[in-house]
Simulated scan of single mutants.
Amino acid sequence: MAHPPNTLSLVSDIGGTNTRVALADGRRVLTDSIRRYRNADFAGLESVLSRYIEEEAVDPASACVAVAGPVRDGKADMTNLDWTIDETTLARATRAETVAILNDLQAQGHALGHIEADQITEILPFPDASDTATKLVIGVGTGFNSAPVYEFAAGREVMPAESGHATLPAHTEEEIELSRYVSTAHGFPSVEDVLSGRGIERLYRWVGERSGHPREAKASEIMAACAKGDDEAAHEAVRVFSRMLGAVAGNLALITLPFGGVYLVGGVARAVAPYLKDHGFSDAFRDKGRFAGFMHNFGVAVIEDDYAALTGSAAYLASRNL
């Protein structure tokens, strides 16, 4: 084997489109072992991991996978992918002695404190806070979700959630109109219908229809057009996205009180990061009536590290000696 047997951990981040797999030595992910697979090319996770183990020639001692979907009693149902993952399947695929399944935002929460400083971009300043202050990770990518991070004497706990399927907030005329527009998708205006990759695309269509110039584009094309500055509809879509993200993040901050900071993660979060400061994110985040001043207690940053969920999975295994 290319690696000594039963010495390394296998970690994986399973998104709606791609699955990343890597090896870890304790909390350290071996970057040269990271491989990416298109989910559409495989019937399920077991075939992905079997391929990786064959290609990497490894017999892992433990394995942890982070999945974009709810995890309950050791079983995960993917939100944007027709895969079901359980611990029995994971153990069979990896032949690891111990296995764990986390929600992807749980893995991102476990990564906090193990990410290089140059991979964190500040959006709103961080006030002083204790080392045990609660933190909050918010994932914006193929889907949307969040998870509070709690520090206890016995160790860190990251609570799972499915907040992307909560009702989209709407209190301005613009937001009410948007809410009605997105509800035509499945009869219910969810946060994820706007704050995700396909949400950017939906916003772009909405902006075009409002102006009498209907148009469609992929999220990557919209962001490229916004950067180029030659598409007013793209700019407007990003403005609405930024304000809505601020409003939702502010709501979640009031629910969880993350005095240790709010951390935005995911591909879409990284794509919109350069526009948040100038497109109304902070105003919407703090627009909480008489609690507007209180909202200055919460710093906000974007995690630029695309492999943070792998690091978090490795940290989870190491912290529990799995």
Rank of each mutant, 00 (worst) to 15 (best):
A2R: 14
A2S: 09
L8N: 01
V11T: 01
D13Q: 02
I14K: 01
N18E: 09
V21L: 09
G26H: 10
G26D: 07
R28D: 05
R28S: 04
I34S: 04
R36D: 04
N39T: 09
N39V: 05
E46G: 05
S47T: 15
V48G: 04
S50W: 07
Y52T: 00
E56A: 14
D59K: 14
P60R: 05
V67I: 11
V67K: 01
P70N: 06
P70F: 14
V71H: 09
G74A: 08
K75Y: 12
D82G: 08
D86E: 07
L90E: 03
L90Q: 06
R92V: 11
R95H: 12
E97L: 15
E97P: 07
Q106L: 07
Q106D: 04
Q106I: 12
Q108M: 12
A111M: 12
D118W: 12
Q119V: 03
I120A: 02
I123H: 09
I123N: 05
L124A: 09
F126L: 07
P127N: 07
A129G: 07
A133R: 04
G139T: 15
F152H: 12
P160A: 11
H165C: 07
H165L: 10
P169L: 11
A170Y: 10
E173R: 15
T184G: 00
T184V: 08
G187A: 02
D193Y: 13
S196L: 07
G197W: 06
R205C: 00
E216K: 05
E216Q: 10
A217E: 02
I222N: 00
C226W: 05
A227H: 13
A233V: 00
A234H: 05
H235I: 15
V238D: 00
F241V: 02
R243Q: 13
V248Q: 05
G250W: 13
L252N: 08
A253K: 11
L254K: 04
T256N: 08
L264I: 03
P274Q: 03
K277Y: 03
K277V: 07
D278N: 10
H279I: 00
F281E: 00
D283Q: 13
A284N: 06
F291M: 14
A292D: 08
A292V: 11
F294S: 00
F298N: 06
A301G: 02
V302D: 00
I303L: 08
A309F: 10
L310W: 10
A315L: 01
N321D: 15
